[in-house]
């Protein structure tokens, strides 16, 4: 399909982000990291895909991705409240790239992080989450480094086409430059919009900060504290229940909640 075997088609899904402090539209952090991964991939032909409504605020945010050094972005126009999965899937299926890169979770809207999975299911492609690095692509097989908690890495091989998602473990996105962002083209195209019926029925309200669990520091010395901070999470105090009836399980949970003081 591709003329040069080393050239790979990469599509990066980008969304309109939201700054955590001011709520201003911006390039989403994880998506921008996805673009960074794509741009540093040798031989990658990168295209950007965004699905959402066309307005001025989102245009400026989307140009933030273009300022990283890309000359165009395709916006699949979708009305507010549409489920963008079918539109994106159709778009991708029409001209399938070998690699789709997306952020793990959007910064606004539902932000459930389910879109990449829904897309993978729709297209029947494998999905790898928490990408740290693409080590190489050869003969249609990508060698990836997946980030696990506490700095651990796992090497995976996945047959392309595939979807990979990036989170904070991926390299920082490069600076977005004003000149290229201003010059690049924002192309719009239409796809049939499927309204998200479930979303329409939900009640949305601003999130409340959840109370943080107090950390009881038992360590006496700095060395102990450091060891506690650096140690692997070990489920020392827990117990594994297998082959229990739902009643027994519920009882165990209730008991734990009472022990922890959540229920009185």
């Amino acid at each position: 399909m591709q003329p040069d075997s080393r050239e790979i088609e990469v599509a990066v899904l980008v969304s309109v982000g939201r700054h955590p402090v001011t709520g201003r539209a911006r390039r989403a952090d994880q998506d921008a990291r996805g673009v960074e991964v794509a741009l540093t991939l040798p031989g990658a032909r990168v295209r950007l895909l965004h699905a959402g409504p066309a307005d001025d605020g989102s245009e400026e945010a989307l140009r933030g991705y273009l300022g990283m050094g890309l000359d165009r972005l395709t916006r699949v126009e979708q009305p507010e409240g549409a489920d963008v999965v079918p539109a994106l899937a159709q778009r991708l299926a029409a001209a399938p790239p070998q690699l789709v890169i997306a952020g793990s979770r959007a910064e606004r809207g539902e932000g459930s992080g389910l879109l990449p999975y829904a897309l993978a299911e729709y297209l029947g492609w494998p999905l790898v989450n928490g990408l740290a690095e693409v080590e190489g692509i050869e003969n249609g097989v990508a060698t990836l480094l997946q980030a696990l908690p506490r700095g651990q890495r796992r090497r995976l091989q996945v047959r392309l086409p595939a979807i990979i998602t990036v989170d904070g473990a991926a390299p920082m996105a490069r600076q977005s430059a004003f000149g290229p962002a201003r010059r690049a083209r924002l192309e719009s195209c239409a796809e049939v919009a499927v309204m998200d019926k479930a979303l329409g029925e939900w009640t949305l309200m601003p999130a409340r900060k959840r109370p943080k669990r107090l950390k009881i520091i038992k360590a006496g010395s700095a060395r102990d504290r450091f060891k506690a901070a650096a140690a692997k999470a070990e489920g020392g105090g827990g117990q594994l229940l297998t082959d229990v009836t739902p009643e027994q399980g519920a009882e165990a949970i209730l008991k734990l909640l009472k022990e922890e003081g959540v229920l009185r």
């Binding site: 402090v21 001011t22 490069r174 600076q175 000149g179």
Partner: peptide, 30 residues
């Protein structure tokens, strides 16, 4: 270098990003 290369060294990109998003270089809540 900044407007075309997008290559402000060290904390430059972060500070400029903060100025754009929060109107102050430290990224504090305006």
């Amino acid at each position: 270098l900044t407007l075309e290369h997008g290559n402000t060294p060290n904390k430059g990109a972060e500070v400029l990003g903060n100025l754009i998003a929060t109107d102050n270089p430290g990224g504090f809540d305006p």
